[in-house]
Amino acid sequence: MTLHPLTPQDAQQRIARGTRLIDVRERDEHLRERIAGARCVPASALPQQLDTEGDDIIFHCRSGARTQAHAAALAASTAGKAYVLEGGLDAWKKAGLAVERTPGAPLEIMRQVQMTAGGLVLLGVMLGYFVSPGFLALSGFVGAGLFFAGASGWCGMARLLALMPWNRMPRAGSSASDRMAV
């Protein structure tokens, strides 16, 4: 099976006729901004078979790249016809179509990781230059952690940041479709 591409306008028409929309981004991304009625099923946690009762499905992510990267698994996860929103959420917004946002939602975890890691590397370099060369080990440690995260797909810093108070927003606050069982 493959994913059949749809323009944002075609997708909007199909959604209005009852085609289901599934957002394959992570929950924190979905919480910040989403297409109304989209159900969040992260590609990282995609089940073998979605409970779609044979319905047609439109999959989307932010730009379309993540959806294309998981196209085979997504197409195989539904008994109905599977579509992809060309250009993802970015194309949807560019077409002038409405999105829902959660005011005050935290930045996506990966952006938080990038900011934290960059800050720690910068701090390690500055302390190594101005205080003691031993502080350069902090930059090396962060770099090794980022390399491990890229190689293994597991990021300890992301897990730690996800536990921070500013990231503890209720999942159910984004949309009723998020509360549906997979």
Rank of each mutant, 00 (worst) to 15 (best):
L46V: 08
V121G: 03
R66G: 05
P106V: 02
T52G: 09
S139Q: 02
G150T: 07
G118S: 12
S77I: 05
D23H: 01
I109L: 15
A71C: 09
G119I: 10
A16M: 06
V41L: 05
V99Y: 05
F148A: 15
S152H: 07
Q112R: 12
G118F: 02
M169H: 13
Q13F: 07
A181E: 13
C61R: 00
D55A: 14
G128F: 02
E108V: 12
P133T: 01
Q49R: 11
P170L: 15
G64W: 02
T7E: 10
F147Y: 12
V24L: 03
T67H: 02
A95P: 00
S152I: 06
G18F: 10
G54L: 04
A172W: 15
A38R: 00
D90G: 12
A65L: 09
K81I: 14
A144R: 02
L3A: 08
A72N: 05
L89D: 02
S77T: 05
R20F: 08
V84S: 14
V113C: 07
R111D: 06
R62H: 14
G119V: 11
L146Y: 00
C40D: 08
R171S: 13
G153S: 08
K81W: 11
F130M: 13
W154D: 00
H70F: 13
I22C: 03
A45K: 10
L146Q: 07
K93E: 11
I15E: 01
A158S: 12
F135Y: 13
Q13V: 06
A82L: 04
A43H: 01
G96L: 13
I109A: 07
V182Q: 14
E29D: 12
A65R: 09
A73T: 07
G145N: 04
H60G: 03
M157A: 11
G119Q: 09
R14G: 05
G128S: 06
A151H: 08
